[in-house]
Design a protein around this nucleic acid. Structure first.
Lengths: 154, 154
DNA sequence: CTAAATGCAAAATTTTTGCAGTCCC
DNA sequence: GGGACTGCAAAAATTTTGCATTTAG
C-alpha cells in the first residue's frame, strides 16, 4: 500500500488523471501534471510546502501558491485527498482507494494499511441515523518501529 | 456521548482535572480552570478561537494566546485531545474516553459515537508490526441529517 | 481567441514567541 | 519569594487573494 508504485501503475494513474481532468474541464497544464505526478509517487503524504520543494528542482519558476491552488482544485474534484492530521500543515495523498492510516506521534510519518473485513462491517446503530456516510476511516496513533528504536531502522 | 453533561459529571470532571494538574505540577490558575470548564461543557469540539470568544464574555481580559498556550499545555499532559480534521483551525475536546467521530463535510459538525465491539477487535497483521499503537480511532465522513434537510432540524 | 491558469506580491488567517508584570504555591 | 503563568505586542508559519501575463483547448 505505502510501497513504491511500480512504473506501470504510475503511468496508468497518470492517464486516468488526465482523463478525469478532461472530463471535468480542468486544463492539463505542465504544473498540474507535475504536481499530480509528484504526489502520486510520494508515499509520505507530503504537505504543499514539501511538494513545492521537491518540484522546485525540476521547475524553478513554480510558485508555492500554485501548489496550494492546484491541490485545492484537485481535492475539490476528488482527484486527491487531504489527510486528516493534528499538524499545522495540511498533508495530501493521491491514493483514492479506501485505506487507513497509522500516524507516528513522534516523527509524524503516516503509513497506509488495508483492512477489508472492517470496510465491509456495518456501523453500530448508535450512529447509523446520523446522516449519509460516505467514508469510514481508521487512524492509528502510536510510535512507529523506527522511532521506538531511537531513529535507527528497525 | 455528545449530549450535554449532567451537572454532577461536570463537577466530577473538574475535580479530576484539578487533581491531575496538581499531580503534574500545573498551577491552577483562573484561566486554566475556565478554559477547561468551557471545553468540558462544549459538545461541538471548538477551536481555540471559538473557546476564546465564548470565554471573553465572562473574562474580558483573557487573551487568545493564553488560550492557545493553555490548550497546548493541556494536550501535552493528556488532559484534552486535539481532534484530527481537515480544517485550517485545530479543534479540541475534553472527553478522554475512547470514542469515535462523525464529521459533516458541509457544516463541519463533529458528532461523537461509541463502538465497543470495534474497540475490542484485533488489528490486521498487515499493520500489527508497525510499532506501538496507543489509539485506534474511526472517523466517518458524510452529510449530517440537518444539512441533508437543507439546514432544517431533522 | 478566450476563458482558465500561473506567478508575483501582498494580505489574511492561524499559531507561536519574547518580555515585563502578575499570581499560585 | 520564586518560578510559573498571563497579557500584550510583535513575529512566524501557513494559506489565500488580486491582478497582470501566459497558456491550453
Amino acid at each position: 500500500m505505502a510501497k513504491k508504485l511500480p512504473q506501470t501503475n504510475l503511468e496508468q494513474k497518470l492517464r486516468a488523471f488526465e482523463q478525469a481532468c478532461r472530463k471535468v474541464g480542468l486544463k492539463l497544464t505542465h504544473q498540474r501534471l507535475e504536481i499530480f505526478r509528484e504526489l502520486a509517487v510520494a508515499c509520505d503524504h507530503p504537505s504543499a510546502e514539501t511538494l513545492y520543494k521537491r518540484l522546485q528542482k525540476r521547475m524553478p519558476t513554480l510558485s508555492l501558491d500554485t501548489v496550494y491552488r492546484t491541490l485545492a482544485t484537485f481535492e475539490k474534484h476528488h482527484l486527491i485527498t487531504k489527510v486528516e492530521t493534528v499538524e499545522s500543515q495540511a498533508r495530501f495523498e493521491a491514493d483514492m482507494d479506501l485505506h487507513h492510516h497509522a500516524i507516528c506521534r513522534q516523527c509524524g510519518a503516516i503509513t497506509d494499511f488495508n483492512w477489508n473485513s472492517f470496510d465491509a462491517v456495518q456501523l453500530p446503530k448508535e450512529i447509523s441515523g446520523w446522516g449519509r456516510i460516505d467514508k469510514k476511516n481508521i487512524t492509528l496513533h502510536g510510535i512507529c518501529g523506527k522511532c521506538a528504536n531511537g531513529g535507527r531502522a528497525k
